[in-house]
Design a protein around this nucleic acid. Structure first.
Length: 267
DNA sequence: AATAGCTCCAACCGCACGTCC
DNA sequence: CGGACGTGCGGTTGGAGCTAT
């Protein structure tokens, strides 16, 4: 059973606001403020409207200093950049753009900017067939011992760059795959003089950390993981360890090892 | 001129979260 | 502690206005 509606839809006026209603609402708030209670406000102001409707009308339309439309190229880039970083957090984006409302930005995004954004993204991707999975499994020992500059110059780094965007589609949920494959924001690190790494950790965002220690090299390791996720330790020539039941969290999976300068997120 | 399809945006809806009692 | 309630938010809808046929 859902929650009771905040007002009686049968008796309360809905739909577009008339200029008279706008005047009443604006006049009341300018004189008395919102009183910290939107639900009670329409009754006090003499409006036959739902409190939520009054709030929306005030915040998105009647409030002073609101800008409508007229988005500039700079505005576009700010919105696109923020969307890239935080997604559809319209209220956060609006907070960075004085005078803009979240609703306005959301509407602008949905009607115009989304197309521009997609076009920009597409123009950055060179179409090519997905690479074979095996190619995505460089042994960590290959990477270990390199500093970030050396890493960036490896074939592996080049390969990552070339095949950006193809990782997700290739990976079947719940399959036994290497951490390297599943990593969405992958950071591989190791100490400067690594021929081996004594201990490392694997962090899964929003879940508990698991610690992983290794002797000898990074190909084999024993993973300890707490609570709800099941981790299988494993060994193969191509991947340092295997993980199971990744379907629910692979997007946020990170691999980190100690002491290495951070390699920028690969995907 | 008629109308079908499209675009835009104000407004609504339902959910999540915080606060209060 | 837990339920009720208010607020804020993102997603969606509906209709007015515009454009193409």
């Amino acid at each position: 059973m859902g929650r009771a509606p905040c007002c009686d839809r049968a008796t309360v006026k809905r739909g577009p606001w008339s200029p008279d209603e706008d005047e009443v609402l604006k006049g009341y708030i300018e004189k008395n403020g919102t009183g910290g209670n939107w639900i009670a406000l329409p009754h006090k102001a003499g409006l036959n409207r739902c409190g939520k409707s009054c709030r929306l009308r005030w915040l998105n339309y009647l409030r002073p200093d609101i800008k409508h439309g007229g988005f500039t190229e700079d505005d576009d880039q700010v919105i696109i950049s923020l969307y890239d970083q935080i997604g559809s957090k319209w209220s956060v984006i609006a907070a960075k753009m004085p005078g803009r409302t979240d609703n306005d930005i959301k509407n602008y995004w949905n009607t115009k900017l989304k197309k521009k954004y997609v076009a920009q993204k597409l123009s950055n991707i060179t179409p090519m067939p997905p690479p074979p999975l095996v190619a995505l499994k460089p042994p960590l020992t290959f990477l270990a011992g390199m500093n970030s500059e050396e890493l960036a110059s490896t074939d592996y780094a080049f390969y990552q760059e070339e095949h950006k965007g193809y990782m997700h589609e290739q990976i079947a949920p719940n399959s036994m795959v290497s951490a390297m494959e599943r990593a969405d924001n992958l950071t591989v690190s190791a100490s400067d003089e690594v021929s081996s790494v004594a201990s490392s950790s694997v962090t899964v965002e929003n879940y508990n950390c698991m610690n992983w220690s290794s002797t000898g090299d990074l190909k084999s390791g024993e993973m300890l993981f707490s609570d709800q996720l099941e981790i299988g330790d494993g060994y193969s020539d191509n991947c340092p360890f295997n993980l199971t039941n990744m379907a629910d969290f692979w997007v946020n999976f990170e691999v980190k090892a100690e002491g290495f300068n951070s390699l920028a997120p690969l995907y």
